[in-house]
Nucleic acid binder design. Sequence first.
DNA 1: GATGAATGAGACTTCATTCAT
DNA 2: TATGAATGAAGTCTCATTCAT
Lengths: 213, 213, 213, 213
Amino acid sequence: MPRAVREQQMLDAAVRTFGQRGYRAASMDEIAELAGVSKPLVYLYLNSKEDLFIACIRREAKALTTAVRAGVHPGLPADRQLWEGLTAFFTHTAQHPDGWTVLHLQARTHGEPFAAEVAALRADMVAFVTEVIVVAAREARRDPSLPEREVAGLAEALVGAAESLAAWANATPGVTARQAAATLMNFAWAGLGELMGGRPWAAPSGAEAVPAG
Amino acid sequence: MPRAVREQQMLDAAVRTFGQRGYRAASMDEIAELAGVSKPLVYLYLNSKEDLFIACIRREAKALTTAVRAGVHPGLPADRQLWEGLTAFFTHTAQHPDGWTVLHLQARTHGEPFAAEVAALRADMVAFVTEVIVVAAREARRDPSLPEREVAGLAEALVGAAESLAAWANATPGVTARQAAATLMNFAWAGLGELMGGRPWAAPSGAEAVPAG
Amino acid sequence: MPRAVREQQMLDAAVRTFGQRGYRAASMDEIAELAGVSKPLVYLYLNSKEDLFIACIRREAKALTTAVRAGVHPGLPADRQLWEGLTAFFTHTAQHPDGWTVLHLQARTHGEPFAAEVAALRADMVAFVTEVIVVAAREARRDPSLPEREVAGLAEALVGAAESLAAWANATPGVTARQAAATLMNFAWAGLGELMGGRPWAAPSGAEAVPAG
Amino acid sequence: MPRAVREQQMLDAAVRTFGQRGYRAASMDEIAELAGVSKPLVYLYLNSKEDLFIACIRREAKALTTAVRAGVHPGLPADRQLWEGLTAFFTHTAQHPDGWTVLHLQARTHGEPFAAEVAALRADMVAFVTEVIVVAAREARRDPSLPEREVAGLAEALVGAAESLAAWANATPGVTARQAAATLMNFAWAGLGELMGGRPWAAPSGAEAVPAG
DNA sequence: GATGAATGAGACTTCATTCAT
DNA sequence: TATGAATGAAGTCTCATTCAT
């Protein structure tokens, strides 16, 4: 069996184990057994527990950003781009719950070296959202634009809300990725005030929008 | 030295250690040393590492909900109540960063018994936000109201955004609690769409609002 | 409350705890609590765990030998003396099961200092039995007597059988002290060979003898 | 070095340590050192202190019953069978004093899980003796046989006497297994009364019988 | 006389990691 | 390449014992 395949099996096992047990509670024994290989082989390929965990983070982060990027068409209006990005995001996190747990919870909880790895992922997401906000501002011919820190805060809030909703959707049976995306679009784009006034964001056809009341 | 005082010292040390190292990586030795007592005394008072962690969670959760509740005046309009709650929330999390880390990250990452403890706290927050949304809907004479699951999703998104912003504000020098609250109010109340159109939420005087462009 | 009384309460608690948990597993905390006093008081009166255990052994040993001695009338024939001694022995061990456990099991299992204490008790019992054998030999006008080592072995066997039967009787519901004594008298005095031939030892009236077949 | 060998070395060390120190006082450190291996290896092979102790009990119990069974020829008369069994028993216990201590003292003193293990061994012995008694009764054409409880008591007494004599023989220099067996045969078969009358059990040639006086 | 408060020492157990083959 | 065998280090927890009052 070629090395690359074996390595992916190990990473699969590691992501699952780290996601369910946590970094410290996961034992190399368990990971090796789940991967169907001997422990020394894991060390031969991945060096150490720390390196193994970092490899997991990188693989899952790359898979997530790739999925989101692939779901967005750059030329569209800002709201449409955001909608596509969110849908891709919630779809991916729903399909890879252990990977998402590793990224969202475990990697941030177990010390600097790992937190730094996820920071890159987050920066990517925030950059995507920031870009969308900038596009939206341009569409609205708004100039001068919002202060930079304000935009950073908004992007942070949106990403945080998305992360939180992903965990919520994974834990709540019956919530689909599109529903989660629609909820967040309403919240983010129209705002609670507009929602209350009966003016939700107009979802593209097929999205479960809030009824106009 | 009386027992109650010693116990608080131990909890202080534990919150700090758990917050910085994580539940598993924190050692009872380190906690005892930081508290200035011997390890057996920690066990005598707090029983076990698990019980100690739960005691930390409960103390910090109570402190946070108490602070938020104390900051809100029930009779005010919905947006004003939300603003007050957020301000109190960001103020408290900024003043107790380790406590916030314990609640937001550590408690959710290390197994059911702890996650269950935080769930109560989160339920409290979501309930507060839900209540505000309901009040806002009533103010807008909106009837019939939003579907229940939609409201739950919105509340979840808002709480998630707040949690995320709290961590961001703690990690970004120069961001005050009021700024964080203002950013989130804009985001949540006006929505990105309105913001882009130059119609932000009108912050009460003293809040750092987004300039109207 | 006078010291002597308190001390007895402590010994009561200790015998019970040692008997049920064993020497090492019994904790001074548990003993103090069961005695209804504080731990330092136990140390004030009894010095150390080791001393406390030795005090238990001595008290229980003395109580047992006193009971056996009180039950025997010196002038009687040998078999009658043995019968009385055994009856007293089984009666006492049935009434003080924890004390008997301490003497029979715990004291012999936890190192020299304690085993030495029980050795004295055992020497007493063996001496009693030896004396009975000598009397019996004299009654049979048997001369020269049995070799000394042979007598020692016989006494040892009889005492061992008695000890074993005491534990058996305590653990088997419905076995009375008199029945245990009768069984052992038959075994010891008549021997299996005679028993099989239908010639059991003639128990004094009131004893449950083996029917003559 | 193959695993099976190492495991026996560990059990050897454990039996010796448990036998001399007792279950609680024996430390895994000491056992590992005596076995010439590291402590984790002991855990790898034997799981836990409790499992290690149980493994010791089982091995020693099996060795003892195997030795006794191998020493007895089923077709012989009852007294001869008993004699053979006792000789094998005393021989084995003399050759494995620590194993005997573990079975006779330690296993019974440290809680139910262990006591239950030895109970099986003891049941085996009592069954053997009971069988002999039944055979003896048949040889003597004794009918109806003794009451069941009476037989149980006799068997218990004989086994108890044997156990006690084994410890005594181990502790008394110069007492051989055959002497111990002869003493007990006299005691059990002829009975003290017959012995006093100068009619001992007739030992097979080679056994150190009591001189007929 | 009596105790609440406190600890040094040591127990069992687990785990990341490495050789020798 | 792949692994069976092995361990140093560290963690949680318990307990006999002693002060200061």
